[in-house]
């Protein structure tokens, strides 16, 4: 009896989580003229693949922007994070803990509280409306969380390893290159997944700092869905396109995804 209720509840919950997905796919596969409100749940007949083609043509430049943005910002911030974490974990100096704490504060602020000066600054240095401006912003505001993840990870590496390499005559970068980096793969994976999903999904900076030609896909999608005249097959196909990269990451690297989630869940 208890078992019955357990499965009934899980089934109900599954419906709650998956029905929206079902409706999205359904709508994306419908001919625009056949999308009417009272038949929304009816399976398309015939299946209309054109929506994806049209949506892909419309969203491709934005999708490419998102790819360039997320990949380059992720790569840069992973590099910065690894170096920062290495310094803080293995080369602490007087006051470095305090500086680290001050750095972490940046993780908790709501970005609305810096948005106006940020907008002015990005404009002043001539990067407003460019993808580079957005990349810069993501790398900078990613510093606290990536530094935290790398520092925690490097603290687990025994100091003796670093000490031994130093006695062998290796310098700061030599130790990093030959001792630390070869051990860093797991931390890089966590950071890369975390930053990639965050940056891909981000909206506030993107909508504030880009022009149409440099928009990532989230901004384009929000604006498309906001227009009333548009038939719903396009926003739905667009939503699938916008969701696909992070969903694939989640499905194939779910374990690391969760780890990043638990590590950095308070990030602003």
């Amino acid at each position: 009896m208890g078992r019955f209720f357990l499965y009934a509840f899980l089934l109900l919950a599954t419906l709650f989580f998956l029905l929206p997905v079902y409706l999205v796919i359904l709508t994306a596969l419908k001919e625009p003229a056949k999308i009417t409100l009272d038949t929304v749940w009816r399976w398309p007949d015939p299946v209309y693949w054109e929506s994806f083609k049209i949506a892909w043509d419309a969203f491709r430049p934005k999708f490419q922007n998102s790819v360039v943005l997320a990949l380059s910002a992720t790569a840069l911030s992973a590099l910065v994070g690894a170096l920062n974490g290495y310094v803080l974990a293995k080369w602490p100096f007087r006051g470095s803990n305090l500086l680290f704490a001050l750095m972490l504060f940046g993780m908790f602020i709501p970005y609305q509280s810096i948005l106006i000066p940020l907008f002015q600054f990005v404009k002043a240095i001539g990067l407003y409306g460019t993808l580079w401006g957005l990349i810069l912003v993501h790398v900078v505001y990613g510093i606290p969380i990536v530094t935290l993840i790398f520092k925690n990870y490097y603290s687990e590496i025994p100091d003796e390893l670093v000490e031994a390499a130093r006695i062998d005559g290796a310098g700061f970068f030599g130790i990093f290159r030959h001792v630390i980096l070869p051990l860093s793969a797991p931390a890089f994976v966590v950071v890369a997944i975390w930053q990639f999903t965050q940056i891909w999904n981000e909206f506030l900076f993107a909508v504030t700092l880009t022009r149409p030609e440099s928009q990532p896909i989230t901004v384009a999608l929000a604006q498309l869905a906001g227009g009333e005249a548009v038939k719903w097959n396009l926003p739905m196909a667009g939503a699938i396109l916008a969701a696909l990269p992070t969903l694939l990451v989640y499905i194939f690297l779910g374990r690391y995804f969760l780890r990043g989630l638990l590590a950095g869940s308070v990030k602003g």
Partner: peptide, 26 residues
């Protein structure tokens, strides 16, 4: 299944639910 929405952007979620919550549909 329960965790996958976490991987989505709030913009995607918003777009989906805007369609689900149409008064005469969804």
């Amino acid at each position: 299944v329960f965790l996958f929405p976490m991987a989505l952007s709030f913009v995607v979620t918003g777009t989906i639910w805007r369609w689900l919550l149409q008064p005469q549909g969804g």
